[in-house]
Design a protein around this nucleic acid. Structure first.
Lengths: 243, 243
DNA sequence: CGCTTCAACTTGTTTAAACATGTTTCTTTT
DNA sequence: AAAAGAAACATGTTTAAACAAGTTGAAGCG
């Protein structure tokens, strides 16, 4: 759908960086050169480059140029750090994914849950517990809270496939924004049971709590993802703000 | 130093959001209104707003406006998620911070270390182990690797204060960019000793490994930060890329 | 030879204008 | 009264131009 020039340029440059068309630590062609190559305005090109900067792919150096600082990440099952569903990231990396629904229920939010989830008291909610398997190994125990008013008729079958796919393709909802907090928490008996980890081994989990907003600015999802610690990796790139 | 118009506007809007001048879930004044208030061009204003978007403070909705989705985070000792030193974030939150150097040495990178740190074989390195205390409680065990060629003459005294302060104020080096990976790892005896955690309680740590680049595009630091799990929190905001 | 100066590059910031697209509201038409 | 249409307003994309500021190398000078 959203075909914009700067997005095409961004993707093309990103691909060229990933496939070593530009060497690590080398400078990319200058803005003027790229403008001629892509036949676009300076602003449009700079917009594409600025996304590469926030991805941690390149670094701009005033007066000198744009340096490629991309290094591929090895040894990782799948990359988090973006809003993408478990299914999406598993497929992208050529793995076999499976999702089992272990609880599918609905209720109205009480005071305690308001504090945890951020949904106002009384909101009608779907509460779903799911286990995600990658190549037959249980990796993530998910606690999903979906706002009924926003997601319509959810079923166990949809939860078993991909809820995000349903939201986007059937409901045409656009997911825009997700705030996340990562913590480390003690393993519970439920975690132990479904993730099949021996508590004598690891007794902690990586927990990612997230609030997700749709394109109307409505927070429609709160999720707590409890990750097997030995398979958890979170990538991030920080750009220092000038003080 | 870096006085730019969009930065001033960004800070002002951010402050207004944090201090509830704009209410949660309300729309901010429209672009046209803000342009008149700040007496700037549309591009400059939009640049400020786009930073608020990536901070997760607001969400833009085409045709409608810019919605305030900022919610203050409670119950946290200090915020990570930016490149700031332990000392900086501790001060910012009014806590008493202390850093103890437990090892200060230097060596040349070997093959194994090259893979871990990303420094080329043979690079001359300072290797420093430090424990960071917040209000007398040991929170973080840091393993720092600094490239000698880039940081000049480091001493144990500098390491006890703030290395970043030294780099920026004395060497006038600008830290630009930092790639990080978060994982959960088993606690070692060294961790147990210096962080004073009973392994019967938690037997894992939150580990943040980072590579930091200066304004010349040179990776001059590799650091592994090992965090007490019960005090670790990492905030993040993801904006979904249009597919 | 060593130094400064300057010109020609690089990226960074700001303005202005035009058109595209989505939302809301009011007016017109049926 | 309900539906359709138009106007007004919102943000999104793109172009063009000018000036600022950092880097580099060549020209020129002592």
């Amino acid at each position: 759908m959203p075909k914009s020039i700067y997005e095409d340029i961004y993707k093309d440059l990103k691909h060229k960086i990933e496939t070593d068309v530009f060497a690590y630590q080398e400078l990319l062609p200058s803005e003027n050169t790229l403008i001629q190559i892509y036949n676009c305005s300076r602003n449009t090109l700079r917009r594409a480059v600025s996304r590469l900067v926030s991805d941690g792919y390149v670094q701009t150096i005033q007066g000198k140029g744009v340096r490629n600082i991309y290094q591929p990440v090895a040894q990782t099952a799948f990359t988090i750090g973006e809003i993408e569903s478990f299914r999406e990231s598993a497929m992208r990396n050529g793995h076999k994914s499976l999702t089992k629904v272990i609880l599918f229920t609905e209720f109205a939010v009480n005071e305690k849950q308001e504090k945890q989830t951020g949904f106002p008291i009384g909101s009608e909610i779907y509460y779903i517990q799911r286990v995600h398997y990658l190549d037959d190994m249980p990796l993530i125990l998910n606690h999903n809270y979906f706002l009924k008013e926003a997601v319509g008729e959810l079923t166990k079958e949809i939860a078993e496939r991909s809820i995000y796919q349903y939201l986007e393709e059937t409901l045409h909802m656009t997911i825009v924004n997700s705030k996340r907090i990562m913590t480390v928490e003690k393993m519970t008996q439920i975690d132990e049971k479904y993730l099949k980890i021996n508590a004598d081994d690891y007794n902690c989990l990586a927990v990612v709590s997230s609030q997700t907003y749709n394109s109307d600015g409505l927070m429609f999802e709160y999720t707590q993802s409890r990750h097997r610690p030995d398979y958890f990796r979170f990538y991030d790139n920080a750009v220092r703000k000038t003080i």
